[in-house]
Design a binder for these strands. Structure first.
Lengths: 120, 120
DNA sequence: TGCTATTGACCACACTTGTAGTCCATGGAT
DNA sequence: ATCCATGGACTACAAGTGTGGTCAATAGCA
């Protein structure tokens, strides 16, 4: 199931703090998103429907927690992204990053180390 | 302007062969997409509206050609993707690539070459 | 020369997404 | 005991998207 842009903003909050009520999620987003709390609640509900998060009753309200792991999500969407935009080949993506100056010297060093290991 | 998933499939054809009629675009996609030719035509029209491609009359039909360059598109969506999924940091994306085994042997070879150049 | 296949233009329609409004139950404040 | 603020459930509604149908013009074939 796809997670939409706005839903992802909510997921990011829950990945950072894995158990929150709707109000708290709303507050965590307040300074970056000019959303009504209803909007946040709708997004939470949709994420529950999609199975990306789950709820635990806590008194009168729900606590929301991620079910989908951020790592798994990243793996999934990265693969999809490379398939769609870079014809499934990762190297051109890295070339793009380099080209756009998105890679720091540290990134480059990490990559080298990584490649060394992959070649073993 | 956003280019949708299906629209991107069409763009990929035109980036590969930069001047085609609707029928030819349809044929180029036939083995990967089970689309009706009308679907392809709709997508072409929407891409024209969005300014991503342009037309040249050729006899009774149009030839479609990309206006948006693949390189520019890639740069744009890559930045967006990293912002959304990796909090704007490229390094974790690269780590993710390695981790998930998304790198083929070919990618690894390409990357080595790339790194050689980056270090110069 | 009339018919058919093809072309782009326009229309359709359900699903997703962004962005909330409305409703009903209830836990607390008075 | 009342009333209100807050919680989740359900509803709304326009824009974007996937997918294709209809239509009128016309180029080419029979």
């Amino acid at each position: 199931m796809q997670i939409s842009q706005a839903e992802l903003d909510v997921m990011n909050v829950l990945w950072a703090t894995p158990s929150l009520g709707a109000q708290e999620v709303f507050e965590a987003l307040e300074n970056q998103k000019d959303w009504n709390i209803r909007t946040v609640k709708t997004l939470l509900s949709r994420l529950v429907e999609k199975g990306a998060i789950a709820t635990t009753p806590e008194g009168r309200r729900f606590l929301y927690r991620p079910v989908l792991k951020q790592k798994d999500y990243r793996a999934q969407v990265t693969t999809q992204f490379i398939d769609k935009v870079f014809s499934g080949k990762a190297a051109p993506l890295v070339a793009q990053l380099a080209d756009a100056g998105d890679l720091t010297q540290e990134d480059i060093n990490d990559l080298e180390k990584l490649l060394g290991e992959l070649k073993k």
